[in-house]
C-alpha cells in the first residue's frame, strides 16, 4: 500500500520528531510551559490552514465518497481546534493575535500552494504526514507517560481511537487518490521535514 511505502521511506524523519527535545519534553512533562504556549498558538494557525486544505481538496473531489471522507476529516480538524481553544483559554493565549513563525508559514504556504495548484493526490500526500506522525507520536508517548504529566491531555488525544481512525481514513484516501510518483513522494517527504522544522521552531523562539 502506498501509505505504508511512503511512511517507511520517511520513518527516520518521524523518529527524529519522536526524539526531538520538544517531544521528549512533552513525553516526560519537563517541556518549558512557554514552548507549549508557543506551540498551541502556532499549531492553531497551522490547523486553520490544514482545515482549508481539506476544504480545497473536497471542492476538487471527483466523487461523493471522497467528498464525504474529506468533510469528515475536516470536521476532525475543527474538533482539534476546539481542543486548542481550550488550551488557549486555560493558558491565556490570544490565538487571533499570534503571527506565524517563518517555519510554520513555510509549511502552510506549501499546503495551500499544493491544494490550489497541484494534483489532488499530491494534496493528500502533503497532508498525510501530519496525521500519521501525530498518531505515531501519541501512541509512542502513551507507552511511557507517567502520572501527573501536565501534557497528558495532548498524549491522550493523539493516541486515542478517534484520532487513529482519522489517520486510517486519510491513509486510505491516499491509497485511492495518489500514485507512487516522484511528485507524490516529494510532497510527503517535504511535509515530514516541515513537521520536524515546526518542532524546532517552537524551541528556537522560546530559547
Amino acid at each position: 500500500m502506498l501509505h505504508e511505502i511512503l511512511w517507511q521511506q520517511n520513518v527516520r524523519l518521524a523518529e527524529a520528531c519522536l526524539h526531538h527535545p520538544f517531544m521528549r519534553g512533552l513525553a516526560d512533562g519537563t517541556l518549558d510551559p512557554e514552548a507549549f504556549r508557543s506551540y498551541v498558538a502556532q499549531d492553531a494557525f497551522f490547523l486553520n490552514t490544514f482545515a482549508r486544505a481539506y476544504a480545497l481538496a473536497a471542492a476538487r473531489s471527483q466523487d461523493m465518497e471522497t467528498l464525504i471522507s474529506l468533510c469528515e476529516l475536516l470536521n476532525g480538524v475543527l474538533r482539534e481546534l476546539q481542543l486548542h481553544a481550550g488550551y488557549a483559554k486555560e493558558l491565556k493565549i490570544e490565538l487571533a493575535r499570534a503571527r506565524p513563525y517563518r517555519a510554520v508559514e513555510a509549511y502552510t504556504d506549501f499546503l495551500l500552494a499544493t491544494a490550489w495548484h497541484r494534483e489532488p493526490g499530491e494534496t493528500i500526500a502533503a497532508m498525510t504526514p501530519c496525521m500519521r506522525l501525530y498518531g505515531y507520536l501519541g501512541t509512542e508517548l502513551a507507552k511511557t507517560a507517567g502520572a501527573g504529566n501536565p501534557y497528558q491531555q495532548w498524549i491522550t488525544t493523539y493516541s486515542g481511537s478517534e484520532f487513529q481512525a482519522l489517520v486510517t481514513r486519510l491513509e486510505s484516501l491516499l491509497d485511492s487518490m495518489a500514485e507512487d510518483t516522484p511528485a507524490v513522494g516529494d510532497a510527503y517527504a517535504y511535509a515530514m521535514r516541515c513537521e520536524l522544522n515546526f518542532f524546532s521552531a517552537m524551541l528556537e523562539h522560546t530559547a
Binding site: 508559514e105 513555510a106 502552510t108 504556504d109 506549501f110 495551500l112 500552494a113 499544493t114 490550489w116 495548484h117
Partner: peptide, 14 residues
C-alpha cells in the same frame, strides 16, 4: 527557493 515559490503560488490563489 521552494518556500519562495510556495509563497507566490498560495498568494496568487488566496
Amino acid at each position: 527557493c521552494r518556500r519562495y515559490c510556495d509563497f507566490l503560488i498560495q498568494a496568487a490563489y488566496s
